[in-house]
Structure formats: C-alpha cells, structure tokens
C-alpha cells in the first residue's frame, strides 16, 4: 500500500470511530456533554505547561445531572469534579437553573509533560430547566466528592396540596 492509501485508510477508520463514538456518547450522555472554553490567556511569549494543557486537552466534559422533584422542593445534582468553591456561579432565571464555572489547572499540575489528557479544563455553563417555579432566595448549594447539589424550595403556589375529601352525611 502506498503511503497515501495508508493515510486514506487510516483517516477513514478514524472517521468511522469518530462517528460511532460520537453517536454512542450523544445517546448515552444526552445533554451532559458540555463544551469547555479555554480561559487561560497566554501571558508571555512562551506557552506554559498550564496553557498547553488547556489548549491541547479535551474541550468536552461530561457534566452529568440529576433532577429530583418532591412535593415542596427541587433538587439538582451535577457531577463537576475538581472545582474550587469560589469558581462556581449558580443563578436561577425564569425557571432555569444556570451553573457556570471555571475549572483551573492547579499550579502544581503545570510541570512535566502529559502522556494522556482526557480531563477538560476551562469555563463551562450548563442550563437546566426546572419543573416548577422556585424561590431562588432560599436556595442552598453544597459540594461534596465532586458533586454539586442545589436544593431549591418550590414557590408556595407550585406546591402540591392534597385536599382531603370529607364524607358528608
């Protein structure tokens, strides 16, 4: 086989894999597949390992979410590993929960050379529609083992009230 044919064959194979992988990923991940934008600007003339890491690393991350609705609140859990608390920005706009964040390459992760880089770095945004209007002023969020949990109390009007039926004689 000539080099050109080899290259063509290789590319076709790669393309098949990409198509297949992409379909599987979309199917499995749904909307969890989130684009990460590089936020680290090149400061000097020479690119640092950190900047290189962001530029060459994965631009897509899986931020898998889970939404649970109970009678009086909505709870959203989002998998975002490796975040610093101050880099979260959580807001509610018209029944949509928006989680923005910025995932930095740690200072001590800027040495050496990368053999494999699959983890995504940079800034991301995920918007999750909520099933009911919520009181955003009373929302609570906590972060544990890389999972962000946001608990939003429903507005009084949205709460389910069970009306007891009385028997009348």
């Amino acid at each position: 086989m000539s080099t050109f044919e080899q290259l063509k064959h290789g590319l076709e194979q790669a393309w098949d894999h990409l198509g297949e992988g992409w379909r599987a990923l979309r199917e499995r991940a749904g909307q969890a597949l989130t684009r990460f934008h590089p936020t680290e600007q090149c400061e000097g003339a020479v690119e640092t390992v950190g900047e290189q890491r962001v530029r060459h690393g994965s631009r897509w991350g899986l931020l898998a979410a889970e939404l649970l609705e109970t009678e009086d609140h909505v709870e959203v859990r989002l998998e975002v590993p490796g975040m610093d608390l101050q880099n979260f920005d959580i807001t509610v706009h018209d029944q949509i929960l928006v989680v923005r964040g910025h995932k930095q390459v740690a200072r001590d992760e800027r040495r050496g050379s990368y053999l494999i880089s699959e983890r995504a770095f940079g800034s991301f945004e995920r918007a999750l529609p909520l099933p009911a209007p919520v009181e955003d002023s009373r929302a609570e969020a906590h972060y544990r083992d890389g999972v962000l949990t946001v608990r939003l109390p429903k507005q009084a009007s949205a709460r389910q009230r069970r009306i007891p039926v009385e028997a009348r004689r």
Partner: peptide
C-alpha cells in the same frame, strides 16, 4: 473515568475524575 497522566522528572502522576465516588 477520564484521566490525565503526566510525567515529571522524578514521578508519574495520574489524575482521574471520579465525581460522586466516596474515597
């Protein structure tokens, strides 16, 4: 889990994203 593997002069480092998994 997605992983990063980095080589430094004196060691190798592996970082794996395992959100929601207790140590």
């Amino acid at each position: 889990p997605a992983v990063d593997i980095r080589e430094e002069p004196d060691r190798y480092l592996i970082h794996a994203d395992v959100p929601g998994v207790s140590p």
